[in-house]
Design a protein around this nucleic acid. Structure first.
Length: 572
RNA sequence: CGGGGCGUGGCGCAGUGGUUUAGCGCGCAUGGUUCGGGACCAUGAGGUCGUGGGUUCAAAUCCCACCGCCCCGACCA
C-alpha cells in the first residue's frame, strides 16, 4: 500500500481531547477518528489491526470447536423484558422504535438472542454441547465514555456462548475458553493476568477476568506478592488486622460539622481504625440493611449485593434522615435494633469505637460492638487495601490498576429458564440448558498494545497485530537509482508475502522517519541514495531501534529472520 | 447525575465590545530551490467565530437559554 494514496493523516500535535496514552497515539497516528462521544471510525490503519486481532481470535475459537455466526445488532425489546434485563441494564440500553412504533434495543450483549435461538433449535441432549461465537458491534449508552476506544458506546466484541447439558459440561466449556483466551492475549503480545471476578449483572456463577496491568486502568486488582491469588478488587478477600481500643462507657460527644472519617479523626485526634462507618442500603419493597465497616476500609458494593441482592443501592440522604433522624455522616447502629445490621468481620469484638450518634453534630464514643449493638451477622464486606494479607498464603497484597480485556462467565440457567430454552435429556425429561458466556473487547486489545508497548515516539505494534509487517521508507524517490532499487525491494518483499506500506512521498526524510515511528510498524526498511552507493539497505527494528544492514540479495532472508525473531519474542 | 474546563478554516491556538477584507503556526494547492531524523522562497485556496434569542449605533467579544466535547467523581454486562 502506498502511503500517499492511503487514508492516513498523522497529526503533528496531540489532539486536545486525548488524555490517555492509547487515545493520543491512536488519534495522532491516524488509526481512529472520533465521530461523537464514545463513537469512532476505525480508519484503514486501525481497521487492519482489528482485522489481525479478529483472525487470531477466530483461529483460537475455531480451535475449541466454536462455530462462528452473526446475530443481529438490533433486537425486539420483548426479549429483554422476558429475561428481566431491560430493567437491570436500564439507561445503558440504546433503544429505538420503528415506523410502526414497535420497540427495539441495540444489543449490549447477546445472551437473550442466543437463548431465543436455542429454544427454537436445540431439542435434545444429542444437540449439545454447542459453542457459538460472533465478532460484532455492540452498543452501550455509557454514562461517561472515556479514554478514546477503551470505554466507548459502540465497540466490537467477540462474544461466545456455550450450551451444555450439565455443570460438568459447563466446566469443560469454561476451561476451553479460559485456555483459548490465554492463547489469544499471548498471541496479541500483551501482558495480562487472569483474576477472579464478579459476575455483576450477568449472574452469580464463577467468572474470570483477563486483565492487562496498565497504569491508569479502569479496574483495580488485588494481587498477592507470594502466591498466585489475584482477584478484582471488587470481590477480593484479604486478611486485615483486628483493632480494639479502651473499654469505656458509651457517651455522646459533640462533633459539629464533622461528617467524614477524615474530619472526625482529625477533630478527635484518633486513627481511622477507631471509627465505625455506617452505610445504609435500601431496595424497593424490601427491608433496608445497615452495614458497618471500620473507618480505614471501604465497602465493596459487589460483596454487599451478593449478600443482600443486586437491587440494593446506597440510600438517599432523604431515606437516611427519615430512618435515623440525622444527616448522613452522623448515623450509627446504636438504638437501631429494628434494622437488619451486618458488620464487617474485622469489627468482631471491637471495643471503644467511635460512630455516629443518630443526632446531627454528635458521635458516640466507647462503642462496644458486642455490648451496644445487635449484629445480625458478621461478614466480609470490605475492599482489600494495600498491605492486607493474602487469604491463601498470608503474603502481602498489592493493589494494581488494570484494563479488562476479556471476561468469562458461568451463567448457568439464568437465561435458559427465563426464556424457556430447554432440552430433553436421555430419560426424556425437559431441562434448562446450562449456559456460559465469554467476551473479548477488540478495541481494548488495540488500545492495550499502545498502553503497554508504545514509547515516546509512538506506537510499537506487536508483529502479530501490526497493520503491516514492513514500513518501506524511500528517500529521494525521484532519483532513478532509488526508484529502481525500491521497486526491486517491493517485488522481493511482496513475493515473500510480507505486507508492506510504501512511503515514497516527496518530503523531507525526517517527516517520513517520524511518521514511521509514530505508526509503529515493527520493521522499517530505508532505501536511499547513500545506502545504495554502498549496496546496502537499512533495516530498523522499531521495538529496539536496532539497525541491521543488508544488501539487496540478503534483504528477504534478513527480514524473515527478524520477523521470526519478533514472533518468537511474543510466543516464546 | 454532581464538580471543573473547553467550543474561532483539517489540526493546535491568539483575539474577550469600535483599525476597513477575523489573525498566527502547522497542514493543504501551484511553481521553484532542497533532500539519511519534522528545510526554504514565492503565490494561493479555505472560516454560518457551536446554535438560538437578547442588549447595543456596533457583538467572536456583554447577557440568557440550549447543544456538543474533554477531565474528575457517581455509574459500569
Amino acid at each position: 500500500m502506498k502511503f500517499d494514496k492511503s487514508l492516513i493523516a498523522t497529526l503533528r500535535e496531540d489532539p486536545k481531547e486525548a488524555e490517555s496514552k492509547s487515545h493520543r497515539i491512536l488519534l495522532r497516528g491516524g488509526f481512529i477518528r472520533q465521530v461523537a462521544s464514545g463513537i469512532h471510525t476505525y480508519l484503514p490503519l486501525g481497521w487492519r489491526i482489528l482485522l489481525k486481532i479478529s483472525n487470531i481470535i477466530r483461529e483460537e475459537m475455531d480451535g475449541i470447536g466454536g462455530q462462528e455466526l452473526l446475530m443481529p445488532a438490533i433486537s425486539p425489546k420483548e426479549l429483554w423484558e422476558e429475561s428481566g434485563r431491560l430493567q437491570e441494564i436500564g439507561d445503558d440500553m440504546f433503544q429505538l422504535k420503528d415506523r410502526k412504533d414497535r420497540e427495539y434495543c441495540l444489543c449490549p450483549t447477546h445472551e437473550e438472542i442466543v437463548a431465543d435461538t436455542a429454544r427454537n433449535m436445540i431439542r435434545s441432549y444429542r444437540d449439545l454441547p454447542q459453542i457459538w461465537y460472533q465478532i460484532q458491534t455492540k452498543f452501550r449508552d455509557e454514562p461517561r465514555p472515556r479514554s478514546g476506544v477503551i470505554r466507548s458506546r459502540q465497540f466490537i466484541m467477540k462474544d461466545s456462548y456455550s450450551l451444555d447439558c450439565d455443570e460438568a459440561g459447563l466446566d469443560n466449556s469454561f476451561n476451553l475458553h479460559k485456555r483459548a483466551y490465554e492463547k489469544i492475549f499471548k498471541r496479541c503480545g500483551l501482558d495480562f493476568v487472569v483474576v477472579d471476578a464478579s459476575g455483576g449483572l450477568m449472574g452469580t456463577g464463577e467468572s474470570k477476568e483477563f486483565m492487562a496491568t496498565v497504569a491508569g486502568g479502569e479496574d483495580q486488582l488485588a494481587i498477592c506478592r507470594q502466591c498466585n491469588y489475584r482477584a478484582n478488587l471488587q470481590i477480593a478477600d484479604g486478611k486485615g488486622e483486628p483493632a480494639s481500643f479502651d473499654d469505656l462507657p458509651i457517651e455522646q460527644i459533640a462533633t459539629p460539622e464533622k461528617r467524614t472519617v477524615e474530619e472526625v479523626t482529625q477533630f478527635l485526634r484518633v486513627s481511622p481504625q477507631n471509627l465505625v462507618k455506617s452505610i445504609f442500603f435500601t431496595a424497593a419493597g424490601k427491608d433496608p440493611v445497615l452495614l458497618l465497616i471500620r473507618g480505614d476500609y471501604e465497602i465493596s458494593e459487589d460483596k454487599i449485593q451478593r449478600l443482600v441482592g443486586h437491587d440494593y443501592q446506597p440510600a438517599s440522604a432523604e431515606q437516611i434522615r427519615a430512618t435515623f433522624g440525622a444527616q448522613p455522616g452522623y448515623i450509627g447502629p446504636v438504638g437501631m435494633e429494628r434494622l437488619t445490621i451486618y458488620a464487617d468481620d474485622l469489627l468482631r469484638g471491637a471495643r471503644g469505637m467511635i460512630t455516629g450518634a443518630n443526632r446531627d453534630g454528635y458521635h458516640v464514643r466507647g462503642l462496644n460492638l458486642d455490648r451496644d449493638v445487635k449484629i445480625d451477622k458478621y461478614v466480609n464486606i470490605r475492599k482489600v487495601k494495600s498491605g492486607d494479607r493474602c487469604p491463601k498464603c498470608d503474603g502481602e497484597m498489592l493493589i494494581e490498576s488494570a484494563l479488562e480485556l476479556g471476561h468469562i462467565f458461568k451463567l448457568g440457567t439464568k437465561y435458559s429458564i427465563s426464556l424457556g430454552a430447554n432440552f430433553l435429556d436421555e430419560k426424556g425429561n425437559s431441562k434448562p440448558i446450562i449456559m456460559g458466556s465469554y467476551g473479548i473487547g477488540l478495541e481494548r486489545i488495540m488500545a492495550c498494545a499502545c498502553e503497554q508497548k508504545s514509547d515516546d515516539r509512538g506506537a510499537v505494534w506487536p508483529i502479530s497485530i501490526a497493520p503491516f509487517d514492513i514500513h518501506l521508507t524511500i528517500l529521494n524517490p525521484h532519483e532513478d537509482i532509488v526508484s529502481s532499487t525500491s521497486k526491486e525491494a517491493i517485488e522481493l518483499l511482496t513475493k515473500a508475502e510480507f505486507s508492506v506500506i510504501i512511503d515514497d512521498r516527496d518530503i523531507s526524510a525526517g517527516i517520513k522517519f517520524n511518521d514511521a515511528d509514530l505508526i509503529g510498524i515493527p520493521i522499517r526498511i530505508t532505501v536511499g541514495p547513500k545506502g545504495i552507493k554502498n549496496n546496502q539497505l537499512d533495516i530498523c527494528i522499531r521495538e529496539t531501534g536496532e539497525i541491521i544492514t543488508a544488501s539487496k540479495t540478503e534483504l528477504v532472508t534478513k527480514c524473515i529472520e527478524i520477523r521470526d525473531m519478533l514472533y518468537r519474542r511474543i510466543n516464546g
